[in-house]
Design a protein around this nucleic acid. Structure first.
Lengths: 233, 233
DNA sequence: CGCATTCCCTACCTGTTGATCAGTAGATCA
DNA sequence: TGATCTACTGATCAACAGGTAGGGAATGCG
């Protein structure tokens, strides 16, 4: 029951493994574990939120103890910070702020792609949405993150809109004032979609759910002032 | 400190008070306390979310013990259910689903009023938003509530849009497909507003915040396809 | 080979939370 | 006047939570 039977393992087993392979494997172990933990934390936060998530649950999912996890992330909050950081790399950093941001002939296509991408990553969206909800409560560790993120997202959206439409949208609205709406639609649709998804990979719900990608395209049509496919599809 | 000095109160004091009034006052104590508890719970949930809220904190705010609170609401979840119910009466029941729903010459004005009303009730909005975020997590007691609420809200929005525009919005979009966008904007703006409010009662933020009411009007302009005041204001 | 580092565990502590149990004081009622 | 109901309180509990202390095994390094 107690930790016995491990001293006989190394010397006898794996006789043909070279020292280099063992070393590199050992080195990589740490970063690999970190990655596993981050992935598990993302899952657990999606399922229970940050406050509801426990270090023990995350650790268990990686196959170590809670104290083993604390070896990598000294506090629960430090774990959250890292989760937020990798999410930024994946999602926002991957689309909203990419260097090739203005490369597309149609800037808003990037946002459309982002939404479609999110629709395939329910876990990530759920984590994000759960944290966003919690972040409005007092003294939440993610509060500042979302505050900054919103400023930043609105600025990005405004720049995109300006690149697309100039200083006025077709209906006369300025990019500055349309930007919050764009962000709001993206966030708001996520909640509806999480509660009742509908879309490419989901059929038979009777049409009650929300097709996030299609709805977002509908909103873009609204910005353009014309409908591209509202009649047929 | 302990409950002394009350046995002399009844017989001697209030000689002219009839038995009926005393009885009713006694009866009302219970309902009054219930109301106080519900109000405190709304506050505490706004500050810490449902999972983060504790019965002790709520009870303390009413001036009773945690066990005293459990006398009125046998479980924490039952308290949440009641909070959700009264919120419905205040907010949704008061505007979205009112009988005089179609009485206004301009149906969407009701929604505008609702948003303006919300902008004056930060605590309620914060409670709602915190719970909405939590509700996407697994086995959350408010999950079903929000699921149903979204269906219902979309149906209500669709009906309103149909009453205003008929079967097609100016840009060709159907009310059915515009409804989710309307709800998404309302929800999404709340998060931005909570994180950085701006508006009538808030000046000097440097324009970085979000004026929820104005932004919502901007969105309605988008639905109409024309801008009413985007140039000057 | 000895030493440091990395990785992870056992043991333990302290605090919190929702909930139960039993009981008390006053009001109501028969 | 006694029975009963309402509105609580105090004591207590089991279950967890995050975090600390310290140690041990495997590995890398000189």
């Amino acid at each position: 029951m107690t930790g016995t039977g491990h001293n006989t393992r190394k010397d006898a087993a794996e006789p043909g493994v070279s020292g280099r392979e063992q070393r590199s494997r050992h080195r990589a172990r740490g970063e690999e574990r970190r990655g596993e933990i981050l992935g598990a934390a993302l899952e657990v936060i999606a399922e229970r939120g940050y406050r509801g998530a426990t270090l023990g649950t995350v650790a268990e999912r990686v196959g170590i103890t809670q104290q083993g996890l604390l070896h990598y992330f000294p506090t629960k909050e430090s774990l959250l910070v890292e989760v937020l950081r990798i999410r930024d790399d994946w999602d926002t950093g991957g689309a909203l702020s990419r260097k090739d941001f203005g490369d597309s002939p149609w800037p808003l296509a990037n946002l459309e792609t982002l939404v479609e991408y999110n629709a395939m990553r329910r876990g990530v969206v759920q984590t994000f949405s759960a944290l966003l909800g919690e972040s409005v409560t007092e003294d939440h560790p993610a509060g500042e993150y979302f505050h900054d993120r919103y400023r930043w997202a609105r600025a990005g959206a405004e720049a995109t809109l300006r690149r697309e439409f100039g200083d006025r949208l077709p209906n006369g609205l300025t990019p500055e004032r349309a930007a919050p709406l764009l962000i709001a639609v993206m966030d708001g649709l996520q909640f509806q979609w999480l509660h009742e998804p509908a879309g490419a990979d989901d059929n038979g719900t009777g049409g009650a759910g929300v097709d996030m990608s299609r709805a977002f395209r509908d909103f873009l049509d609204l910005l353009y002032g014309t409908s591209r496919d509202a009649d047929g599809n």
